[in-house]
């Protein structure tokens, strides 16, 4: 469905991703975890076209999309919800939902968005920027039901949100996976990410250090040590 092959990408002169291959298929729940600065956001921006693939390939539904523009990739069914700012803060909730629908289907957009997150009903005419963090994340996620994507990429789904809201968000993600949508979640916090995913990638310093089922990854303690000390050992051994 969606694949990145040996992708190299970065900003300006610095290379952040050093040959990363990942895959998300229909109805699959995938997590990418790793410490701060590992390149998780860069990875997700490279998948959706905000950053060019410098070498390697981006493949969507078996078609090479390495050189495609962001909006073309979006129309091909890739829905990226960026970290902390997946909404237009100055626009109303209603306007946000209608925009999410893109060029067609805006008539029923609000209806579909509210069916997923009925809590937003009473805020329809409110500016998105005045919603609470959790409500904003829900509005951002409503784009999934409004725009009918085949793959959803979420950057830091739970960052800065209260635990109750995080549970609700992961419930929602579980539902859309069962509907056959591929979901890739990037998380710094691993607890939820590991519980949710059927396949986990661990990213460290721009390279994959693990790819496989979450239960083979080892305990969370071990992962934490990897976060904090792995780098240190790695640097000492070089």
């Amino acid at each position: 469905m969606l694949e990145l092959r040996e992708a190299v990408a970065g900003y300006g002169d610095s290379t952040v991703l050093r040959g990363v291959s990942i895959e998300v298929s229909a109805g699959q729940a995938v997590s990418v975890v790793g410490p701060n600065g590992a390149g998780k956001t860069t990875l997700i921006r490279t998948i959706c076209g905000l950053l060019p693939v410098r070498s390697g390939a981006r493949i969507i539904d078996g078609v090479d999309a390495t050189a495609q523009s962001v909006h073309a990739i979006a129309r091909a069914g890739v829905c990226h919800i960026p970290e902390g700012r997946g909404v237009f803060p100055g626009l109303s909730v209603r306007d946000n939902m209608m925009l999410f629908a893109g060029s067609d289907g805006k008539r029923t957009a609000v209806e579909r968005g509210l069916s997923a997150f009925p809590q937003l009903t009473k805020h329809l005419n409110q500016r998105a920027g005045s919603l609470s963090g959790g409500q904003q994340q829900m509005l951002a996620l409503s784009r999934v039901v409004v725009s009918n994507p085949s793959v959803v990429l979420i950057d830091e789904a739970s960052l800065g949100l209260a635990p109750v809201i995080v549970d609700e968000i992961y419930d929602f993600l579980g539902r859309i996976v069962s509907e056959g949508i591929g979901v890739l979640v990037v998380e710094q916090y691993v607890t939820h990410a590991l519980r949710f995913a059927s396949h986990v990638y661990v990213l460290q310093r721009g390279a994959l250090v693990y790819s496989g089922a979450p239960n083979e990854l080892g305990s969370q303690e071990q992962l934490f040590e990897r976060y904090l000390e792995g780098d240190l050992e790695q640097s000492r051994s070089t």
């Binding site: 739970s158 710094q188 916090y189 691993v190 607890t191 939820h192 303690e221 934490f224």
Partner: peptide, 9 residues
């Protein structure tokens, strides 16, 4: 600290 980094409650 571990909880904060891993997002545990």
């Amino acid at each position: 600290v571990r909880a904060a980094y891993l997002g545990q409650e």
